[in-house]
Computed example of a mutant assay.
Amino acid sequence: MVSGTGARFLAGGMILACMAILGPSTPGGSYVAKTLPADAPEDFVPNRVMTWNICNPCNESGSNAGRAADIASYAPQVVGLQEACVRDVERIRDYLQYLYGLDYHVEYGSVLQSWSRCGGVPWNPGGFGQAILSAAPMKDRANVEYPEGGSEDRGYMAVTTEVDGRPVRVFNTHLAQRQQAEFRAAQVDVLAKEVARHDRTIVLGDFNAMPGAPELSGMWDLAADVDPECGPAATGSCDVTTDWYSKFDYVFLRGFVPRGHEVSLTEYSDHNLLHADLEPA
């Protein structure tokens, strides 16, 4: 297995060879890697996780290549994406592998088949919902659609993978829109019951609610967010995660504590990237 700097050089050499294979999975035939920050890691960062609502529809030119570069700038071991079309995630994964040497496993939690959002053809529209990318293999995938999604179908997915060299159950969710608190409360009830079954758990997602929102109480009863200033009492100053200066995106932990976190700006979504480095509790 080639990793680190060697993987980056190998990836560059493989790009032309892969063009014929990947074809339409890489939009526009463009294989120019975006320059990463000077301090970008050269391989997966152990125990680093990320959540990101990648925004759909957001029709930025070269958005999938840009999204891949944003992820590669931090190289998390686990990434949870929301508002994710299967075709977009396939392209993001290809860019990560062939341009940046990061070979992620992928599992999908689609809750909607949507031609208007995800393209395709009317009889075979693209899947829309959540996706998890993991450096380690995943198993036991669960895909649950909430009984009441609000104005759009919503749900959560879960997989078992490895963080800190041990199995962990990872959840990824997207709750009902911000004006629909009653739907979010019911959705948190469904999610929290499953999360409570696991002692080592990472819950990623766009909860569409500020930390003090009553409907999030079921999550705060079980877990803490990676931002130590965030909590149900809202006594601290949370790092905002959206373009409208709200804290909607969370990484809830059971069996882990955060060593640090960062919210990173991006031009490819109306949500910013939230990533954190973890250690066992």
Rank of each mutant, 00 (worst) to 15 (best):
L222R: 11
D164K: 02
E262S: 03
A192T: 11
R169M: 07
G212M: 11
P24Q: 09
M138Y: 02
E83G: 05
Y108W: 07
F128V: 02
L274I: 13
T201S: 15
A209W: 00
V170N: 12
R87W: 06
A233P: 02
T26N: 15
D277T: 12
A20E: 13
I202Y: 09
A38P: 07
E107P: 01
M19W: 04
G62I: 04
G127R: 06
D206E: 08
Q179R: 11
L10W: 10
M1A: 14
V257R: 11
W244E: 12
H105N: 15
A65Q: 15
H174K: 09
P280Y: 03
N64Q: 15
H275M: 15
P258C: 14
S246G: 04
I132M: 08
G212P: 05
E90Y: 01
V2W: 09
A224Q: 13
C238H: 03
E152P: 00
P228L: 03
L274T: 04
L96P: 03
R259H: 00
V86M: 06
G236E: 05
P57E: 05
N143D: 07
P167A: 14
F9A: 13
L274C: 09
G66I: 10
A136G: 06
N56G: 03
D221G: 10
A192V: 04
R200N: 00
Y104G: 09
T235S: 14
G155R: 00
F183S: 01
A69E: 09
N47I: 00
V86I: 11
N56Y: 07
S269T: 11
D277Q: 13
M210T: 14
A158Y: 00
P125F: 03
V111P: 01
S246P: 01
A38Y: 14
C18V: 15
P27N: 04
S73Y: 06
M14S: 14
V49T: 10
E90V: 10
G109P: 01
T160P: 03
I15S: 14
G120R: 01
P24V: 02
S30I: 10
D39H: 08
